[in-house]
């Protein structure tokens, strides 16, 4: 077992070294892909070996989140957006997340088909990922993967998901700019936006603008935004406060992903948003927020792991457990847990 881990770590080291090499090429791309696989399969244990080495190379990419229901045309639009950046000579990477079947645990990942135009371009990288259920730590894995791609030297990173469930919405806490795509004609979708996506959206895109109802959809969104502007968000801990920054009203843009119509306007707005974040200092605020979340997730993982290990194998814990069995005032599971937590926190923060 240990030799297996050792050999895995040797492999990881080989690919990390390749990735650090400033020269681009198929080998570096493969190293990127291999490292992503290690993260996908090994989770934080693998990330712990990789991220610390690559972290100094990160912080350069513009991260764009794109979400929309199946059929909204988000993959085609992602492909169009990528084209434009590639034409400017930038390096573009896409993480395309598709749902895992809750019944079989399998998934079909079909986003490459729409990226066909680009995927042999040396400046383009696309990776398909299954969300592996909502419990699979997708958001955390995605954050790790974004960091690796950032270190690889991608100017633009696009994360694309159907945006179902909290775990997928959490992904967008990693993005600088989040696009929510809503084509006309899907009746109940406005409700879905109200329910969760409204507060993380920086730009609304009404794709498939050639269809009936596109203008109506734009009007609906504008009305919703008029209404939303007056809402005071109380909870300081909420994502909304950080994302719904003063002075930025999410623009609503009509596009046609198939023909590329209006995609330049969309890109302008993405750029405008990026400048806005920089100039107003919101970028830093968001980064702080993002890393808090990242840290919370990492802490959760390692604390749980450590706590489990300690509770089950450390002799000292038995003293606390003994107290429980006395069934006395102050020896209940909550008080005891609090006491244990006290010990932990003292160890780490005092």
């Amino acid at each position: 077992m240990t030799t297996e881990i050792q050999s895995k770590n040797t492999q990881i080291q080989k690919y990390v070294d390749l990735l650090k090499n400033p020269e681009k090429g198929p080998k570096k791309k493969r190293a990127l892909a291999r490292l992503i696989t290690f993260i996908e399969n090994g989770g934080p244990e693998a990330a712990k070996e990789i991220i610390p080495q690559l972290y100094p190379l990160t912080g350069k990419a513009h991260i764009i989140g794109i979400t929309g229901a199946p059929g909204s045309g988000k993959s085609t639009l992602t492909s169009e957006i990528s084209n434009h950046y590639l034409e400017q000579g930038l390096t573009v990477s896409v993480i395309a997340v598709d749902p895992t079947s809750p019944f079989t645990g399998g998934a079909i990942l079909g986003d490459r088909i729409r990226m066909k135009k680009n995927f042999t371009n040396p400046n383009f990288f696309i990776r398909s990922m299954a969300n592996r259920g909502q419990l699979g730590g997708l958001a955390m894995a995605t954050k790790d993967v974004i960091h690796i791609i950032d270190a690889y030297g991608s100017d633009i990173i696009i994360v694309e998901t159907v945006g179902v469930g909290q775990s997928e919405i959490d992904i967008f806490k990693s993005a600088h700019t989040t696009l929510v795509i809503t084509p006309p004609g899907l009746g109940d979708e406005i409700q879905a936006i109200k329910a969760g996506l409204m507060e993380i959206t920086d730009i609304f895109v009404v794709n498939k603008m050639d269809r009936d109802g596109a203008d109506k959809r734009v009007a609906e969104l504008e009305t919703m935004l008029d209404f939303g502007e007056n809402i005071q968000i109380e909870n300081d801990y909420s994502q909304a406060k950080v994302v719904r920054c003063d002075g930025w009203r999410p623009p609503v843009i009509k596009t046609n992903g198939l023909t590329g119509e209006n995609v330049p306007i969309l890109l302008e707005n993405i750029h405008r948003h990026f400048i806005f974040l920089e100039e107003t200092g919101f970028k830093k605020k968001r980064l702080q927020f993002r890393y808090k979340h990242y840290i919370i997730e990492i802490l959760k993982y390692f604390l749980v792991k450590n706590v489990e290990e300690i509770v089950f194998s450390n002799e000292k814990i038995n003293e606390f457990i003994e107290k429980l069995l006395a069934y006395e005032q102050g020896s209940d599971p909550y008080t005891i847990s609090e006491a244990i937590l006290e010990v932990f926190l003292n160890r780490y923060f005092s």
Binding site: S101, A107, G110, R112
Partner: peptide, 16 residues
Amino acid sequence: ISRGLRDAGFEVIYTG
């Protein structure tokens, strides 16, 4: 085959 393997628990990337 892609569907069948998905139903057998694999993650299938279909490239068209």
